[in-house]
Design a protein around this nucleic acid. Structure first.
Lengths: 155, 155
DNA sequence: TGGTATAGCATGGTATTTTATGGGATTCAA
DNA sequence: TTGAATCCCATAAAATACCATGCTATACCA
């Protein structure tokens, strides 16, 4: 596995009648080092699909196990919500995945999808929704310059 | 054996008159790497069936040993409840297991079963019950956003 | 710098495989 | 011998892999 891997850039691709979309080739290059699978799930906080490597979710599973008790309600709730929603999507030789109805509906995607890199994860948006969301984020950043402060708080 | 294996997604399958259910193919793929057996038991906290690899229960046994005293009532109770209830279920060439009456009754399952991935484990629910449970969990998580806090605590 | 060749990519269509599930046969135990 | 559990076979539907084409971005050369 490569030491450095980041999902980046914003790419627009078509979704055909069967729900097939080409995963951007840059993204594929990252995944291909391990397998030909990507994990997708409905974002908890926004009307979009999120994607990442299975490895990333595996880390989360371990984190949850370490942070909560086997019999605790919190562990139950979290694992149900996260893993109950996530699913593996394998892409074929041409690099397409077949998104499920559930995911497409949640993101209000019909015939076009926008892939937005987020580092270890990426998101898939309806083009109009993404346009609005990006404007909103930019406006907020201009007001508050939040990024650096937030990092300090967390450390 | 694969480095990463997670039970994911939510899948609805039919239960026939004999009590047979297809284990979702993704789940089978995970199990098949080791054997053709899965362990199931009645959930301690919810009206559903829980399933996992025997390996996972083995880890739990170790955890219980480490966390409680050999002679303690807690260890007694836990081990009785978990291991007294658990049973191996082998699936046939078409991938079906034959759930026992005891398990089906506990989960109120008659003709349809919902498999819910939970990472290292999965659950089997009655469809209506799962629908309610999922709504409850989502509402609770949206109120508290527990995931991030828990992660911080663990670090 | 400008123009052309080439390789890679997205996308539409088609073929193949896998999977869920019903029904029946067989085995084993009571 | 009867009942229950397990195994095997058949089928329809859905998921997935493969093939072919047109386009775009990149590389190469004059």
């Amino acid at each position: 596995m490569r030491k450095v891997f980041l999902f980046m850039d914003t790419i627009i691709n078509k979704v055909d009648a069967k729900g097939r979309v080409s995963l951007p080739s840059d993204y594929r290059a990252i995944v291909k080092e391990l397998s030909s699978e990507i994990v997708c799930y409905r974002s908890l906080s926004a009307p979009c699909i999120e994607g990442c490597l299975e490895e990333t979710l595996d880390k989360l599973a371990t984190d949850i196990e370490n942070a909560t008790d086997f019999f605790s309600e919190t562990q139950d709730n979290l694992t149900n919500l996260v893993f109950g929603d996530a699913r593996r999507f394998t892409f074929d030789s041409t690099g397409r995945i077949n998104l499920s109805e559930k995911l497409l509906q949640h993101a209000q995607i019909t015939d076009t999808a926008v892939f937005v890199g987020k580092g270890r994860k990426f998101q898939i948006w309806n083009p109009q929704n993404w346009q609005k969301e990006e404007a909103r984020i930019r406006a907020e950043v201009l007001k508050n310059r939040p990024s650096l402060n937030i990092k300090r708080e967390a450390e």
